[in-house]
Design a binder for these strands. Structure first.
Length: 1059
RNA sequence: GGGCCAUUAGCUCAGACGGUUAGAGCGCAGUCCUGAUAAGACUGAGGUCCGUGGUUCGAGUCCACGAUGGCCCA
C-alpha cells in the first residue's frame, strides 16, 4: 500500500515537512558523501555571496541554478565539493555599519576606534551569513554549510598576500599618482570596476559658460563650458580640436571664440568675423578664471590641442584642470602643465585657495558664479541633466581627485588573460566576446583603498629610501618584523592590529611600516580558486580540484569583477584558467519588467516568496526561464507554474496512488514486459525515455530551460492524453492484487491490461521523480518516497538515487507520430463537433479524415482506435482530398472582369460556372491562371468559397481536414441519452457521498426510460457500478433526484448495495 | 566612436541542425466537464516573425546594411 494522497495539497507545508524529514534522516550529508569514492570529479567553486544583508529572491535565482547543476552531477555519480562562500570584507560592509552607528565620515570611525569598528564589521558579516545559511536551507540548497568559506578568513587574506608578492616578483605592482574617481563621504577612491558596476545615475548639473580673456588678443575671449564649476579653480589649459573650424563672433559687447558648429550656444545676435582651424589657436595664452588664488601662482594658461574635443556639446573649447579630471591629468603630463589639486579627502578645498579653502565642493557653485560675475567672466548658466558617477555604496556624487594609489599593471598580462579567456567555455556564448572586450580596454587595476575593514595590503614602504616590499605570508612577516609582532600576534590580519608590525628596509635599513590602505574587494573573491582549495598547504588537494569545471554567477558586472579577478589570479599564479566553464544569467525584474527596489515597494522578500508561493514553484519558474534574458518574477508567474505544471504532476501522482491502493497494486509483482504492453503504454514509455535523453542532454549543456520545457510538454501529454485515455483501464472490474471481493470475476486479459497500466504509470512517475529531483527537490522526493517505499531496491530519498538513464530501445518514433496524429485529428474532430454544436457525449456515425501527406494514411489506421474513442464516433474513413468533405463554389470577380471583358462577361461567367470547381480552386491557390471554357483568367479574377457537404461538419488546418457526420439517428440518440443518464447517476453517487468503489442498486420511475434501459441497461449498470437497474420507486432512505435531459424525464433513486 | 544583446500574437515569451501552412501561457470570446477539483479539458478570434537587400530549390532561422530598444566600454 502507498500512503494515501489527497488531491488537495499544501505545498508549502509539504516543503517544510520535507526539510524536517531530511534533517532527521541526515539526507543532505548522505547526499554529499554519496560519491566519495567516485573516480569522476566535477569541480565547482562558489562565487561568494555578500553577507551584508539577507538574501533576496534574485539570489535565490542564482542559487537555484547552482543547486540544480550540483544535484544533477551528483546523481550522475560525480564527486564534488559543496562549499558555499561568503564575501565579507570591504566598503559595503563598512557603509552599513556606519549607518547603524550614525556615522557620517571617517573621522567618526577614528574617534570610535578602528579595532572596535572592524570587529563590528566582522560581526555583521557573521550575523548575515547565518541568516543566509538558514534561507538557503529553506530554498533546498544543499551545501556543506558547516564548511562555508569566508573571504575575511586569515587563509583567504594570506593567500592574497602570496598573490600580491608574486605580482611584485613579476614587476606588476607600482604606486602611481593619478586622478581617480573619489567618494568624499567615504573618503576613498573607487576603482574603475566599482564605478561601472552600478555607478551612473541621471543628475542635473549646472552647464556653466565662462569667458577666458586672451592675453595676446585684446578684447577677445575663449568661451568654455563646464559642468563642474569647482574645477575652474584649478584650470591651467583650454583644449581645442586641431582640425575643427573655430569662429570668432561679435556678440553684444563680447568678441568670443567657439567652434563653428556650436555658434548656436551664443546668447542673442552674433556676427561671425573670422574663421580658423583649431590648430591656429593652439599656443595662445589667456587669463585664467581664478588666477588670483595662491594655488595658481606661477601657472601658465595656454590653449592646447586635443583630438577628443567634441562639437556635440559645450563650445568646442574644453576647460582643463589636471588636478581635477582624469583626462585632464593625462593631458597635463603630455604637455607639462601645472597640476593643481584642490580637494582634500573629504572633498573640502585645501589650503591655498583663499576664500574657497575650507568649503565643501558641494557648496561652492554659487560663490563661484558671483566671483566670475565680478570679474566679468561669467557668460551664461543652464541646467544640464546627464549621467554622472556616484558612489556605488552610499550614493554620494563622486569627484575627481589627485591621489597616490597602488596598481597592478595590466599590459604585461593582457595577452595572456585574453588567451585564457579564449580557452574558457562561456554560457551564453557571447560572454567570451564581452570579457575580451573588457580585457582589451582594461586599465591598470587599482587595488588600494583608503579605508579600514578589508584586506590589509601587505605592502611595506620604507620611510628612509621610499622603496617598498611585499610580504607573501604571515611567516615571512614574522621573520621580517622588527617591531609590533607581539601586539599583532593572535589577531586576524586586519587593521588596526596588523598596522603595528614594522619591518626593516632591505635596502637602507630604515623602518618600513605597512601602508595604511586596504585592498579592493575583488581581490578577496578572485583568490578563492586558490585559497579554498588549500593552495598554500596541500598542493595535491589543490591540483585535484583546480581549475573549477564550472562556476556560475549573474553576468552584469561580473565580467569586470569576479570573472576578471579569477582570470587575473589564475594567470599570475599559474598562467592557467581558474575555471573551464562559466554559466551566467541576467537580472531579475518584477512581474511587469520594472527594476525591483525596496523603495518602490515591488521587491519580494525571499521568506515571503518561500512561504507563499513555495520553493518548488519558485525553482521551476527559474529553471524554465532562458537564463540570458532578464526574468520577470512575481507571484502571478509562480502561480501559473504551480497551476500548469506542479499541480498536474501532483494530480497524476494522486490519481495513481488512489487507484493503486484500491487495486492493491504491488510494484514488485512482475508486470508484462514493456514490449508486450498496449500501444498507449508503449507510447508513454517511448516519450518518457526520449524525455530522459533530452533532459540529460540539456542539463549537460547548461540549458535548464529546454529541460524544463520538455518536461512540461511531457507532463501535459501524460496528464491529458495518457492518464485521461487510460482511466477506464484502471477502473476495470477485478482487483489485480485482490481476493475476489465484491464478487466481480475478472477476465485474465483485463487483469493483464490493468497491471500493464499500473506498472507503466508507476515507472513513469518514479522516473520523473528522479529526472526532476535536481530542479524541484521537494515534491519529487515526497513522490519518490511514497512510490518507492514498497519497492525493495529503493533508496531512502530520491536525492540518493542515480539519475535515470534513457533506454533508447523503448523509444518508438513511429508510435510517437501515430499518437501525435491521433491527437491532431481528435482536436480537429472536436472543432468540427463544436462547430456543429454537437457535444462529445452524443455518438456519431463516422469521421472522415484527409491527411496532409499520403504517407500519413498508414499512421492513421494505427491511430484510428484512439480517434474513434476520443471523438465518440463509429467509424473512420480516409479520404483522398478535400472535395469529399467540401464543395467549392466559384464566383466571377465582376469588379475585375467587368472592365476587362465588357460585354463578354456573360460568356466568361458561364464558362467559369461550368469549369471544375476544385481544379479552379487549386489553380487559384497556386497562383496559376484559371482555364475555363477557352478563357484564361488571372487567379484573382474569380472568388472561391467553400460549402460543407450535406450532413458533415468539417475543420481544416495545416493541410489536414477532418469531418464528422452530423446525422443523428434514433439509435445514436438513444445511445447519447444512455451516456447522459450515466453521467447523471455518477453525479448523484457523488452527491450521496458514496465511495468510488461502492456498488449500488439504481431505481428509476416516471416512465420515459424504458427504451433506454432495454437497449443500454447493461452499459448503464456497468458504468455506474449498479448491481441492478429496477423500474419503480426507490425505497425510503434512497438518494433520489428528478432528472430531465434530452426531452426525457425520470426520478432516479440510488441505494448502496449490501453485496 | 567601439563591443555585446534584443526586436516573433494585445501582454510575457518558446522556436537544435535553414525544410511543407510559426507555437505556448496570460488576456479575450465561447463550449464542455465536475469520480484528478487552491481544478481541468476543448474550441475560436488574434501574427507583413523590425526594415531593406543578399545567399539558397527553400530564410523567423544564415550574411550585409539600416532602424529601434537595452547593457557595456571609451
Amino acid at each position: 500500500m502507498f500512503e494515501p494522497v489527497g488531491s488537495r495539497v499544501d505545498f508549502v507545508k509539504m516543503e517544510q515537512d520535507a526539510i524536517e524529514w531530511w534533517n532527521a534522516h541526515d539526507i543532505p550529508s548522505k547526499y554529499m558523501r554519496r560519491n566519495e569514492d567516485s573516480d569522476k570529479r566535477y569541480s565547482f567553486i562558489d562565487g561568494p555571496i555578500t553577507a551584508n544583508n539577507p538574501m533576496g529572491v534574485h539570489h535565490a535565482w542564482g542559487r537555484s541554478y547552482k543547486d540544480l547543476f550540483l544535484r544533477f552531477r551528483n546523481m550522475l555519480g560525480y564527486r564534488q565539493r559543496f562549499q558555499n562562500g561568503y564575501d565579507g570584507q570591504g566598503l559595503w560592509i563598512e557603509v552599513e555599519v556606519e549607518k547603524e552607528l550614525g556615522f557620517g565620515s571617517k573621522r567618526d570611525i577614528e574617534k570610535f576606534g578602528v579595532g572596535e569598528f572592524v570587529d563590528m564589521c566582522k560581526a555583521r558579516v557573521d550575523h548575515f551569513s547565518d541568516i543566509i545559511t538558514e534561507q538557503s536551507k529553506r530554498l533546498g540548497y544543499w551545501m556543506d554549510w558547516e564548511d562555508s568559506y569566508h573571504t575575511k578568513s586569515d587563509e583567504n587574506n594570506y593567500t592574497i598576500w602570496h598573490f600580491l608578492k608574486t605580482c611584485h616578483e613579476k614587476g606588476l605592482i607600482y604606486e602611481g599618482t593619478d586622478v581617480m574617481p573619489w567618494c568624499p563621504r567615504c573618503s576613498t577612491g573607487l576603482s574603475e570596476h566599482e564605478i561601472v558596476t552600478e555607478g551612473y545615475v541621471e543628475i542635473v548639473h549646472p552647464g556653466l559658460f565662462v569667458k577666458f580673456p586672451l592675453l595676446d588678443r585684446e578684447g577677445e575671449a575663449l568661451l568654455v563650458w563646464t559642468t563642474t564649476p569647482w574645477t575652474l579653480s584649478s584650470n591651467v589649459a583650454a583644449c581645442v580640436h586641431p582640425d575643427l573650424t573655430y569662429a570668432k563672433a561679435r556678440n553684444g559687447d563680447d568678441t568670443l571664440w567657439v567652434v563653428e558648429a556650436r555658434l548656436s550656444t551664443l546668447r542673442g545676435d552674433y556676427e561671425v568675423i573670422e574663421k580658423v582651424k583649431g590648430s591656429e589657436l593652439v599656443g595662445l595664452r589667456y587669463r585664467g578664471p581664478f588666477d588670483e588664488l595662491p594655488a595658481q601662482d606661477g601657472a601658465q594658461h595656454v590653449v592646447i590641442a586635443w583630438d577628443e574635443v567634441s562639437e556635440s556639446e559645450g563650445t568646442g573649447i574644453v576647460h582643463t584642470a589636471p588636478g581635477a579630471g582624469k583626462e585632464d591629468f593625462a593631458l597635463g603630463k603630455e604637455h607639462g602643465l601645472a597640476v593643481i589639486a584642490p580637494l582634500d579627502e573629504e572633498g573640502v578645498f585645501a589650503e591655498g585657495f583663499d576664500w574657497l579653502s575650507g568649503m565643501s565642493v558641494f557648496e561652492v557653485n554659487e560663490p563661484i558664479y558671483e566671483s566670475l560675475k565680478s570679474k566679468g567672466m561669467f557668460y551664461a548658466l543652464e541646467q544640464y541633466p546627464h549621467r554622472y558617477p556616484v558612489c556605488w555604496r552610499c550614493g554620494t556624487e563622486l569627484v575627481f581627485r589627485l591621489v597616490d594609489e597602488w596598481f597592478i599593471r595590466m599590459d604585461p598580462i593582457r595577452d595572456l588573460l585574453m588567451e585564457i579567456t579564449e580557452q574558457i567555455e562561456w554560457v551564453p556564448s557571447f560572454g567570451r566576446a564581452r570579457e575580451l572586450d573588457w580585457l582589451r580596454n582594461m586599465d591598470d587595476w587599482m587595488i588600494s583603498k583608503k579605508r579600514y575593514y578589508g584586506l590589509a595590503l601587505p605592502i611595506f614602504k620604507c620611510e628612509g629610501c621610499g622603496g617598498f616590499e611585499i610580504m607573501g605570508s604571515e611567516d615571512e612577516l614574522k621573520g621580517r618584523a622588527v617591531e609590533g609582532w607581539n601586539e599583532f600576534e593572535g589577531h586576524s590580519p586586519h587593521r588596526p592590529w596588523v598596522d603595528a608590525v614594522k619591518i626593516e628596509c632591505r635596502d637602507c635599513g630604515a623602518v618600513a611600516p605597512r601602508i595604511q590602505d586596504v585592498g579592493n574587494p575583488w581581490l578577496d573573491a578572485g583568490i578563492v580558486s586558490f585559497s579554498t582549495l588549500k593552495y598554500r598547504h596541500d598542493r595535491d588537494y589543490w591540483k585535484e580540484w583546480f581549475p573549477a569545471d564550472w562556476i556560475s554567477e549573474s553576468f552584469p558586472g561580473q565580467f569586470r569583477n569576479w570573472f576578471y579577478s579569477l582570470l587575473t589570479m589564475g594567470a599570475v599564479l599559474q598562467e592557467a584558467p581558474a575555471f573551464r566553464l562559466v554559466f551566467s544569467y541576467a537580472l531579475m525584474r518584477d512581474e511587469h519588467g520594472e527594476e525591483m527596489h525596496k523603495s518602490a515597494g515591488n521587491a519580494i522578500w525571499f521568506e515571503d516568496a518561500a512561504e507563499n508561493m513555495g520553493v518548488d514553484a519558485m525553482r521551476w519558474t527559474f529553471a524554465r526561464h532562458t537564463p540570458e534574458n532578464n526574468i520577470n518574477f512575481g507571484y502571478a508567474t509562480a502561480d501559473e507554474v504551480r497551476r500548469r505544471f506542479i499541480i498536474p504532476l501532483w494530480n497524476v501522482y494522486s490519481f495513481f496512488v488512489t487507484y493503486a491502493n484500491i487495486d492493491r497494486f504491488d510494484p514488485s509483482v512482475k508486470a508484462p514486459a514493456a514490449s508486450e504492453r498496449p500501444d498507449l503504454d508503449r507510447w508513454i514509455l517511448s516519450e518518457l525515455h526520449q524525455l530522459i535523453a533530452d533532459v540529460t542532454a540539456s542539463l549537460s549543456r547548461f540549458e535548464p530551460e529546454s529541460a524544463a520545457r520538455r518536461a512540461e510538454e511531457f507532463v501535459e501529454s501524460l496528464s491529458n492524453w495518457y492518464v485521461r485515455r487510460s482511466r477506464r483501464r484502471f477502473w476495470k472490474s477485478g482487483l489485480i492484487g485482490g481476493d475476489g471481493a465484491n464478487g466481480q470475476a475478472s477476465a485474465p486479459e483485463d487483469v493483464a491490461d490493468k497491471l500493464a497500466a499500473y506498472a507503466t504509470l508507476y515507472e513513469v512517475l518514479l522516473s520523473l521523480s528522479k529526472l526532476l529531483a535536481p530542479i524541484i527537490p521537494f515534491v519529487t522526493d515526497v513522490i519518490y518516497r511514497n512510490l518507492a517505499a514498497p519497492n525493495g531496491g529503493a533508496r531512502e530519498s530520491v536525492h540518493l538515487e542515480d539519475y535515470p538513464v534513457a533506454d533508447m530501445s523503448l523509444v518508438d518514433e513511429r508510435l510517437n507520430e501515430v499518437t501525435r496524429l491521433a491527437q491532431r485529428v481528435s482536436s480537429m474532430g472536436r472543432a468540427a463537433r463544436s462547430k456543429a454544436g454537437i457535444k462529445v457525449r452524443q455518438p456519431l456515425e463516422r469521421v472522415l479524415v484527409k491527411t496532409r501527406a499520403a504517407s500519413e494514411r498508414d499512421l492513421l489506421s494505427a491511430a484510428a482506435p484512439q480517434i474513434l474513442d476520443e471523438l465518440n464516433v463509429g467509424a473512420l474513413e480516409v479520404v483522398e482530398d478535400e472535395s469529399a468533405l467540401m464543395r467549392y463554389a466559384v464566383m466571377p470577380n465582376l469588379r475585375l472582369l467587368g472592365p476587362k471583358y465588357g460585354a463578354e462577361v456573360g460568356a466568361v461567367r458561364q464558362a467559369l460556372a461550368q469549369a471544375d470547381a476544385a481544379a479552379t480552386a487549386d489553380a487559384m491557390r497556386a497562383g496559376r491562371a484559371i482555364e475555363a471554357g477557352g478563357y484564361s483568367l488571372e487567379p484573382d479574377e474569380a472568388l472561391v468559397t467553400t460549402e460543407e457537404r450535406e450532413g458533415l461538419s468539417t475543420a481544416v488546418d495545416a493541410g489536414y481536414a477532418v469531418a464528422v457526420s452530423t446525422t443523428i439517428t434514433p439509435e445514436l440518440l438513444l445511445e447519447g441519452q444512455a451516456r447522459e443518464l450515466v453521467h447523471r447517476i455518477q453525479n448523484m453517487r457523488r452527491d450521496a457521498g458514496f465511495d468510488i468503489a461502492d456498488y449500488i442498486t439504481t431505481y428509476y420511475a416516471g416512465g420515459d426510460l424504458g427504451d433506454l434501459v432495454s437497449a443500454h441497461g447493461g452499459y448503464v449498470k456497468q458504468e455506474t457500478l449498479s448491481v441492478d437497474l429496477v423500474e419503480g420507486d426507490a425505497p425510503s432512505g434512497a438518494h433520489t433526484a428528478e432528472q430531465r435531459f434530452d426531452g426525457l424525464s425520470a426520478t432516479i433513486g440510488l441505494v448502496k448495495s449490501s453485496g
